[in-house]
Amino acid sequence: MENENIITQLSIFVSNEPGRLAAIAEILKNFNINVKGFNLAESSEFGILRTIVENPDRAFDCIRSKGVIVKKTDIIGIATEDSSGSLFEAAQIMAKAGINVEYGYSYTGKDSDQLFVRVNDTEKAIKVLKEAGVKLIKRSELQ
């Protein structure tokens, strides 16, 4: 059975052309894709839009049908009440377990803050975080 704590993020390639981001946002809008969180990583000549969406499988197919480069990436969502303290705690647990955090971004929700991270070993990270009592977001909570 798939681990319910693994969250699917969609990573979208955005080239450095005026209007490219707007064009992608328009695709999301036209397909009624509900965005729960996003982050734009950029270098000087291109960007990568990372998004958490409702029904990522459908969103993936919709985006790809428009010829846009999109990829599914497994990430973990950490529910936090006090983000700086929790970030420290989670980071320390993973560091001890030898897990590398590749990138992360946060989103302030209604009930809690959410911290999304991409790590080099998702399964192991979920295991050690859960064992340490850190509250992880379930995939179903984002639907």
Binding site: S43, I48, R64
Partner: peptide
């Protein structure tokens, strides 16, 4: 043009490719 199946979502990978 980047090939869709060769896309990495890490900036460092793409910069390295470039």
């Amino acid at each position: 043009e980047l090939k869709p199946d060769m896309f990495s979502d890490k900036v460092t990978d793409l910069v390295r490719l470039r």
